[in-house]
């Protein structure tokens, strides 16, 4: 463990171009995937929270269950889609960062949808009669709910980011862990472990956790921190 911490400090202090390349690709892939997942998952979550339609219950159970989608399975599905033998083969996306973004989006969207559904549904219960009495239709109500739940939804997005940044199975499968092209933090950790460079692997793991900490910290800094919430 001492070795690992030394290694981590060394990595950060003398962070060479290679490390920076890997870190920035990780961030780029995971943050983009989370942004896309929010664009799909938030409206979907809001819809499931508010609308009543046949099959809604099944969809809710489905998204909840998909939160546990194994990354390798998500990777496999996206692989089958993007492979030259698959339907989207001609797009030549396999083994590119785009493929990794797609796989992580698949992985994170159910999390965003399921957690935001819960958040929005709770708030909806509370606001429903008030908003309807003001003559708001579903569309307007969704905007109000999304806005008022924004802090909780930010936490939802962070949970999604955590999942995306930490997973290795999906990006390994569809990215291929190609040096300088699709090598990210987690696949590097897996690679260094398989080379028996355990200190290096743990060191990289610590760097990854520091990054997660930094991202979370940056987001939390946006939130009001006083015990009594001050709204603007």
């Amino acid at each position: 463990m001492g070795d690992a911490i030394t290694e981590a400090l060394h990595l950060i202090a003398f962070g060479d171009a290679a490390l920076w390349e890997i870190v920035s690709l990780s961030l780029r892939v995971s943050l983009t995937a989370v942004a896309l997942a929010c664009m799909i998952g938030l409206p979907l979550g809001a819809l499931l929270a508010i609308a009543r339609f046949p099959g809604r219950g099944a969809l809710v159970v489905g998204t909840n269950a998909l939160m546990g989608l194994p990354p390798v399975l998500a990777g496999l599905l996206v692989y089958l889609l993007l492979s030259r033998a698959g339907p989207l083969g001609p797009l030549e996306l396999l083994y590119t960062p785009t493929a990794m973004i797609i796989a992580q989006t698949v992985l994170v969207t159910p999390i965003v949808a399921a957690l935001s559904r819960q958040v929005i549904e709770d708030l909806h219960q509370e606001y429903d009669e008030q908003l309807r009495s003001m003559g708001l239709r579903t569309g307007g109500a969704v905007m109000t709910l999304l806005y008022d739940a924004r802090l909780s939804l930010l936490t939802v997005a962070l949970a999604g980011f955590g999942r995306a940044a930490a997973e290795v199975g999906a990006v390994m499968m569809v990215g291929g862990n190609i040096n300088h092209v699709t090598r990210v933090m987690t696949t590097t950790i897996a690679l260094e472990t398989s080379k028996g460079n355990l200190a290096m692997a743990v060191g990289l793991g610590l760097v990854l956790m520091l990054i997660a900490l930094a991202v979370n910290g940056a987001v939390m800094a946006l939130r009001p921190t006083k015990a009594v919430p001050r709204h603007v």
């Binding site: 692989y79 492979s83 030259r84 033998a85 698959g86 083969g89 396999l94 083994y95 291929g176 862990n177 190609i178 040096n179 092209v181």
Partner: peptide, 18 residues
């Protein structure tokens, strides 16, 4: 660009044209 996997998976990937 090297995709490093087990021989079995490398063969399967190549069979798919990947």
């Amino acid at each position: 660009r090297v995709v490093a996997v087990g021989t079995g998976q490398a063969l399967r990937n190549a069979r798919n044209g990947d």
